[in-house]
């Protein structure tokens, strides 16, 4: 059996140096890792903060644009008001029709729904109901396409 005392002195010193080097390396590695994690954390946090401020800025910009949009919509609505249109029509020489002639077109397909829309009649059950906007649009689109199809089939 060989005891440590049996090692030559220079061997023991070499071993200690290796141990120290390894320790230093481990500590350095840990420090490097910690620094990396810290750097990553700080970078991310800083990036997050900058992005957050940017989002806030964009939200403020969005709000401002929405306000400007609302303003423009209001201006359009005012320009399209009934009183203004009437005044403009009269200035351009438009008049109410004195006589209206109706023409009967045999087999002209008029959908009951569109007729009701014109007359403002809703022939539905006397209950309250709720439906999605998408389904209303889909129904409207399907009705429009069907109406075009029907028109195309009318013989002149």
């Amino acid at each position: 059996m060989v005891s440590s005392r049996d090692f030559p002195e220079h061997c023991q010193k070499t071993s200690e140096r290796r141990f120290e080097a390894r320790t230093v390396a481990i500590v350095a590695l840990v420090l490097a890792l910690l620094s990396l994690v810290g750097w990553l954390y700080l970078t991310q946090t800083s990036h997050l903060a900058v992005t957050g401020y940017r989002i806030m800025e964009l939200e403020q910009r969005k709000a401002l644009l929405e306000e400007e949009n609302a303003q423009l919509e209001a201006e359009i609505a005012e320009l399209e008001s009934a009183a203004r249109l009437m005044a403009r029509a009269q200035a351009l020489g438009f008049q109410r029709p004195e006589k209206v002639t109706y023409v009967i077109v045999p087999n002209y397909p008029v959908q009951e729904e569109s007729r009701d829309e014109v007359s403002g009649v809703q022939r539905t059950a006397p209950t309250d109901s709720a439906e999605g906007l998408t389904s209303i649009l889909a129904r409207w689109w399907a009705g429009l396409v069907a109406q075009f199809d029907a028109w195309l089939q009318v013989q002149p």
């Binding site: 059950a125 006397p126 309250d128 109901s129 709720a130 906007l133 998408t134």
Partner: peptide, 11 residues
């Protein structure tokens, strides 16, 4: 918003 509640006639 996305929901439309229609009033139906009561007779």
């Amino acid at each position: 918003q996305e929901r439309v509640i229609s009033t139906r006639p009561y007779l």
